[in-house]
Simulated assay, not measured.
Amino acid sequence: MIYPIIAYGNPILKREAAEINEGEDINELISDMFDTMDNANGVGLAAPQINKGIRLFVIDSSLMLDEDSEEKGFRKVFINPIILDEYGDDYGFEEGCLSIPDVRAEITRPETLTIEYFDENWNLKEEEFSGMTARVIQHEYDHLEGILFVDYIKGLKKRLVKSKLIDVSKGKIPTDYSMIYPTR
C-alpha cells in the first residue's frame, strides 16, 4: 500500500513520536513505507510523514551517492532508534523533504553518528554511520523528534522560504505523489 505523504503544517510532524512495543508485528507497515518512499523517489521516510506517530523510519541512502563514491549506501529499517553520539566535522549539504516539496536549504550536520536501533526482525543493533548515510539518518531521526529541516534555517533565509512553506501547507506546490494537506 502506498500512503499519502503528510504535508508541512500538519501537527503530527511537530510531535515527538511514541516508541513501538518490542516484538510488535510491523512488517506490513515497513513494506508499505518502502513502497511509499520509492513511489515518491525519496531516500528516507519516517512514520510521522504517513500520519503514524511511532518511532520508525526507513532509508535508502544508496540513492544519494555518486557512482564514484567510496561510501556504500544502505537500505535499512530503524525501529525505536536512539542516536547515542554525533561527531566529526560539521558539513553543509542541501536537504529537502517529501513533506516539504520544492523547498531546499543547506543544513549543517556532524559527519558521523552512532545509533542504537532495532532492525525489522527486532534485533538490537548499535552501529556507526558516516557521510550521506549519516545525514539521511539524522534527517529521518529528526522527524521522530518533531524537528523538520526547515527548523534549522534562521534569519533572512527563514523569511525567504516562509511563503513557500505556506504554499506547501495549502497544497499549492505540485508533486508526483499523493499528499495530505493541513489547510486546503
Rank of each mutant, 00 (worst) to 15 (best):
M1Y: 13
Y3I: 03
Y8E: 03
I12P: 05
K14G: 05
K14P: 12
A17L: 03
E19T: 12
E19Y: 14
N21T: 14
G23H: 00
D25H: 10
E28P: 07
E28D: 14
E28V: 11
L29E: 14
I30K: 02
S31R: 14
D32Q: 12
D35E: 15
D35L: 09
M37T: 10
N41R: 12
V43Y: 13
G44Q: 12
P48F: 07
G53Y: 00
R55A: 00
L56Q: 07
V58Q: 00
I59G: 03
D60C: 06
S61V: 03
S62N: 01
S62Y: 04
L65C: 09
S69C: 08
S69W: 01
E70V: 08
E71I: 02
G73C: 15
G73A: 15
R75V: 00
V77H: 03
V77P: 04
P81H: 09
I82N: 07
D85M: 13
Y87T: 11
Y91G: 09
E94H: 07
E95N: 11
E95R: 09
G96D: 09
G96A: 14
I100L: 06
L113H: 05
I115M: 01
E116K: 13
F118R: 06
W122T: 03
N123F: 10
E126V: 07
E127F: 01
F129H: 13
G131T: 03
M132N: 13
T133R: 03
R135M: 09
V136S: 01
I137T: 02
H139C: 13
Y141I: 01
Y141H: 00
H143V: 08
H143C: 10
L144K: 11
E145D: 05
E145K: 00
E145F: 03
G146D: 06
G146M: 11
V150S: 04
V150T: 14
D151M: 02
I153L: 00
G155C: 07
L156M: 12
R159P: 00
V161G: 01
K162C: 08
S163L: 14
I166N: 07
I166H: 06
I173R: 04
I173Q: 02
I173W: 10
I173D: 02
P174I: 12
T175N: 08
D176G: 14
Y177N: 10
Y177Q: 12
I180P: 12
